[in-house]
Design a protein around this nucleic acid. Sequence first.
DNA 1: ACTATTTCCTGGATGC
DNA 2: TGCATCCAGGAAATAG
Length: 289
Amino acid sequence: MPELPEVETIARGLAKRITGDAIDSVWLGEKRDLLKSPAAEIATTLEQTKIASIHRAGKHIVFDLERIEDSGKHTSRAPGKRAKSNGVSPKSQFIVHLGMTGRLQICDPQTEIEKHTHAILKLGSGRELRFVDPRRFGRLSVAKAADFDAGGVEPLEIDLERFIPLFRGRKTPIKSALLNQKLLRGVGNIYADESLFRAGIRPLRKASTIKLSQLEKLFVAVQEVLKEAIALGGSSVSDYVDAEGKEGFFQLQHRVYAREDEPCLVCKTPIKRIVIGGRSSHYCPKCQK
DNA sequence: ACTATTTCCTGGATGC
DNA sequence: TGCATCCAGGAAATAG
């Protein structure tokens, strides 16, 4: 399940491989629940553009697109008349959320089309960018210019002074607050659990009752966990692989996630699993207060 | 303004 | 072996 470190890894891999490539044409499947914008709008926004850059915003992959001006070679547009006169190509964005099982694959056109392929972008280089998502929790959308707003703040860009107030007065469990994308964007179930373990805070603790010194530890823990995970290419649980089909290795560093009943790596107490807001949450009852 | 709960979806695992 | 049931998860919608 791709969270910030996995999405970062994927975005970097995609950037390396298809930045500068063109999107010639777009095919979208029948399943429209994946589309946040109308299919026709997505297709026309993507077609005949150049991929100027690719980056991550929270758990979203953002493609910055520049429209390719058809410079009159094949059109009958009057000389000197251009779509835009300021010399800047109109910009737009293609935004992909992978949900739980979404994947973006770069492949040759003759590669067999996998089951649950919902979108195929034909690239100028002859390759294809395909979106595959069996469970269909992923989402595709487009935005004008640089309009896309992913919600809260980037956990790796925020400082302590802006981190602390995010939790002020919140009665919700700290685990739920960490998962709230309107506060911090990009933290998901794995990294919330791992951060809370490192900070020594139980996931059920009400956010507002956590002391400043503990929030400071949490701030450090969140950044540490995310940075380490990015360095290892993310966590490969289920069948996660990056843009090149490579696995990440941070799952080997998990101290609580999916370790129910296994001994705590610090104190040997069995790790507990509880459900908070429908999410399974793992913690050490001795190390976390 | 906030919080808790429900809904979406399918493959894999489990149980009988 | 086969069938039914449950579970995983993020985010949006709904209800309180």
